[in-house]
């Protein structure tokens, strides 16, 4: 049984995406994840982070979004915490198929990708916080 964990916080700005990537890559390397899984975790967290930054806040203040990643046995468990408006990504509709092109609805595409790339996703509202928990199986 192996166990490793890291946590970090980012400001609610899209320019923080590079920092998000660096944190995930560092964690992924430290627990020896394949590049493909690092990519997939990065993509899922990018989509959720981008949603929070784009739609989560009604003021123009700076806010922290807190990430915690841990490897427990053969799964990466990720927790994302923000104090934005309540938003449940599990219940939100996703756009399953993009075709046909003419009537493709683009909204929900990011969440569709998250759900496809991760194995489990859960949401809870606790006080003034949104808490998303994700599980990604990384080893057979």
């Amino acid at each position: 049984m192996s166990k490793a964990a890291t946590s970090f916080k980012l400001k609610n700005a899209l320019t923080e995406l590079d920092s998000l990537f660096q944190h995930i890559e560092q964690f992924g390397r430290s627990v020896e994840l394949p590049k493909k899984q690092i990519f997939q975790i990065n993509l899922a967290l990018d989509e959720l982070f981008t949603n929070i930054v784009s739609y989560g806040y009604t003021d123009s203040n700076s806010h922290w979004i807190v990430f915690r990643l841990s490897l427990v046995n053969d799964a990466v468990i990720i927790r994302i915490e923000d104090n934005g408006v309540p938003f449940d990504p599990v219940a939100a509709p996703t756009s399953g198929s993009a075709a046909p092109l003419e009537n493709c609805k683009i909204g929900g595409l990011g969440l569709h990708i998250v759900k496809k790339m991760m194995d489990e996703i859960a949401y809870e509202r606790r006080g003034d916080k949104n808490i998303i928990t994700i599980k990604k199986q990384v080893r057979p």
Binding site: K36, F39, L43, G96, S97, A98, A99, P100, H112, M117
Partner: peptide, 16 residues
Amino acid sequence: QDYVKEVFEIAGFDSF
């Protein structure tokens, strides 16, 4: 690249 292509496939964009 393979990882990038997979995103297109998951989104269903490779069909059109």
